[in-house]
Every structure is written in C-alpha cells, then in structure tokens.
Computed example of a mutant assay.
Amino acid sequence: MDQATIDLLAARDAALATTQLYIELHRDEKYVALANTTLTETQVHELIGYRMRLHHLEKEAGFPNIELPKPPRFMA
C-alpha cells in the first residue's frame, strides 16, 4: 500500500470516528423513544449518506488521488 493510500484511509477513518458520536446519540435517543431527537430525520439521512461515501471511498475513480467527501453542513 502506498503512502497516498495510507494517508487517505487514515483521514477517512478519522472522519468516520467523528461521525460515530452522532450515530450513537441518535440511536440511543430513538431507543429510549425521545419525542425530539438531536438530529432531524433529514440530518440522519445526510449523515448516513456521508458515512456510506466514506466507506466506499476505495471504489471511487482516481482512488487514492481523490479528496474526502464533504461532511453534511450541520457538522461544519
């Protein structure tokens, strides 16, 4: 594995780790049946889509010479 691949996958893993808190918080809030969750359903869908793009990064044309996808706006 070349250095560009190692660096990109490390950045991807860091981005996934950053989103994990949001996923766990939403899951826990749904589990205890909170009427109002921290994330809206739209935000959850955006977050899951972002995480899926990160997970499938290696399938992108030009990998590893690509940039990470941009996170959802609510995370910025």
Rank of each mutant, 00 (worst) to 15 (best):
M52H: 15
R53V: 09
D13G: 04
L25A: 13
M52P: 01
D28C: 11
T42I: 09
E41A: 04
A35K: 12
L57R: 01
T18H: 13
L57P: 00
E58S: 12
L47P: 04
A11S: 02
Y50V: 08
T37C: 11
A35N: 09
T18D: 14
R51M: 10
L21M: 11
L9V: 12
V44P: 02
D2F: 05
M1T: 12
Y50D: 03
I23G: 05
R53C: 10
D28F: 09
K30A: 07
I23V: 15
P64S: 00
H55S: 14
D28P: 06
F63W: 03
Y50Q: 08
L16V: 14
E60A: 14
L21Y: 14
L9Q: 12
Y22G: 03
K59V: 09
K30D: 01
L34A: 12
L8G: 07
D2T: 10
A33L: 14
D13Q: 03
R12S: 07
Q3E: 01
T38F: 01
L9D: 07
A61Y: 10
D2W: 04
R12F: 06
D2V: 07
I6V: 06
N36M: 14
E29K: 07
F63S: 06
M52S: 10
D7S: 00
A33K: 15
L39E: 00
T40E: 05
G62R: 00
M52L: 13
L9H: 06
Q20N: 11
L54C: 09
E58N: 10
I23E: 08
Q20P: 01
H26D: 05
Y31W: 12
E41D: 12
G62Q: 01
E41G: 01
L16A: 12
V32G: 00
H55K: 15
Q43C: 07
E24Y: 11
E29S: 13
L34M: 14
R12P: 01
L21C: 08
L34R: 15
L47W: 04
G49A: 14
M1C: 09
E60M: 13
P64I: 00
G49P: 06
G49W: 08
A14K: 15
Q43T: 05
D7N: 02
T40Q: 06
A61W: 10
L21P: 03
E58C: 10
R53N: 13
M1Y: 09
L39W: 03
G49H: 10
T5R: 09
A17T: 11
A4R: 03
P64A: 02
A33C: 11
T40C: 09
I23T: 13
I48W: 11
Q20S: 07
Y50C: 06
M52D: 11
E46G: 07
M52T: 12
H55P: 03
K30Y: 00
M52E: 13
A4H: 03
E46D: 14
L57I: 04
V32L: 07
